[in-house]
Simulated scan of single mutants.
Amino acid sequence: MWIFHRPPGHARHDTPLDTGTIHAGGVSVRTEHHTGLDRAAGIRNSEARGRRTWSRAIHDHVGNVPQAVDGPPPAEFLSAEQLLARLRPWVVTRDSIEPDTRWYTHARVVAPGLCEVLALDLDDSVLTLTDDALAPLGGVVDLRTHALDNLRALPVDSHTALHGPEGLRFHVMTGDSFFTSSRVLTADELAHDLTGRGLGPDGALVAMPNRHQLALCPVDTVHGTDLLPTLRCMTAFTADHFEDAVGQVSPDVYWWHGGTLTRLVRQDGGEPEFTHNVEFEVLLLRLAGNGAAGHF
Results as ranks from 00 to 15, higher is better:
L129T: 02
T130K: 04
D131A: 14
D132S: 13
D132R: 11
D132C: 03
L134Q: 02
L134P: 00
L134S: 03
A135S: 14
P136T: 05
L137I: 09
L137G: 04
L137V: 09
L137Q: 06
L137M: 07
G138S: 10
G138H: 06
G138M: 04
G138E: 05
G138P: 02
G139K: 13
V140A: 10
V140T: 15
V141C: 05
V141R: 14
D142L: 14
D142F: 06
D142M: 12
D142Y: 01
D142V: 11
D142Q: 13
L143W: 05
L143E: 04
L143R: 04
R144W: 00
T145P: 02
T145M: 10
H146D: 06
H146C: 13
H146F: 10
H146A: 15
H146M: 09
H146Y: 09
A147Y: 03
A147W: 02
L148W: 02
L148K: 08
L148F: 06
L148R: 14
D149C: 09
N150A: 06
N150G: 09
L151Y: 07
L151T: 06
L151M: 06
R152G: 05
A153L: 12
A153M: 08
A153E: 08
A153Y: 00
A153V: 04
A153I: 01
L154Q: 15
L154A: 11
L154H: 04
L154N: 03
P155C: 07
P155W: 04
V156G: 05
V156K: 07
V156D: 10
V156Q: 05
D157Q: 10
D157M: 08
S158Y: 00
H159A: 13
H159E: 01
T160V: 15
A161H: 15
L162E: 06
L162C: 14
L162K: 05
H163I: 13
H163K: 14
H163D: 15
G164L: 09
G164P: 05
G164V: 10
G164I: 08
G164M: 08
P165I: 09
P165T: 11
P165Y: 00
P165S: 13
P165W: 02
P165K: 13
